[in-house]
Amino acid sequence: MFGHPQFQTGFTELDDLSASAYGHAVQLGCFDRAAIISVLKLDEPEVDRIEQVLLRMRLLQPRPGDPSVLVPVSPDVAAADLVGPTEHQIRDLMQAVTDVRGKLLSLTPLYFEGRRLRNRFEAFDVITDVDAIQNVLNRLGQTCRKEVLTVQPGGARPSSLLPAARKSAEGMLERGVRMHTIYQHTARGDLATKAYVRDVTALGAEIRTADEVIDRMLIYDRETVFLPVRTCEGGESAGAAIVREPTLVAFLCAVFQHLWDSATPFACDTPKATPATDELKQSILRLMAQGYKDEMVARRLGMSVRTCRRHISEITEELEATSRFQAGYNVAMAGLLGKGPAASAAEWQQPSPPRP
Rank of each mutant, 00 (worst) to 15 (best):
L40E: 09
G29I: 02
R49I: 08
R33C: 14
I50Y: 03
A19G: 04
G29S: 06
A34Q: 03
P45K: 15
D15C: 09
S18M: 01
I36E: 00
Q27D: 15
D16P: 09
E44Q: 04
E46A: 11
E46G: 09
L42K: 00
S20H: 07
L14A: 10
F31R: 05
G29M: 08
H24E: 12
A25S: 09
L17I: 06
V47W: 04
G29T: 06
S18N: 05
E44H: 00
V47C: 07
L17H: 02
S20Q: 12
E46P: 13
V39L: 15
L28P: 06
L17G: 00
F31Q: 05
E51G: 05
V47L: 07
G29A: 10
V39S: 04
L40F: 01
D16H: 01
G29K: 14
E46T: 12
D43T: 07
Y22P: 00
A19W: 13
C30L: 11
F31N: 05
D48R: 14
I50G: 12
A21H: 02
S38R: 07
E51W: 14
L14S: 12
G23T: 10
S38Q: 15
P45C: 04
D32M: 03
S20Y: 06
A35P: 04
I36P: 00
G29W: 14
Q27C: 15
G29H: 12
D15T: 06
C30I: 15
Q27M: 11
L42Y: 08
S38P: 03
K41C: 07
G29Y: 13
S38V: 12
D15V: 10
I37Q: 03
V26S: 13
D43C: 03
L42V: 00
D48P: 15
R49G: 13
I50H: 04
F31C: 08
E46N: 15
A34E: 01
S18W: 04
R49S: 14
S18Y: 01
D48A: 13
G23E: 05
R49D: 11
D15A: 06
D43Q: 08
A35N: 14
A35R: 12
D15E: 13
K41M: 08
D15I: 08
C30K: 09
L14G: 02
Q27E: 11
H24G: 02
A25W: 02
H24R: 13
G29L: 09
I50D: 00
I37A: 03
H24T: 14
E13T: 13
A35Y: 10
V26K: 09
D43E: 10
I37K: 03
L40W: 00
K41I: 01
D32C: 06
S20N: 07
V47I: 09
E51F: 15
D32V: 05
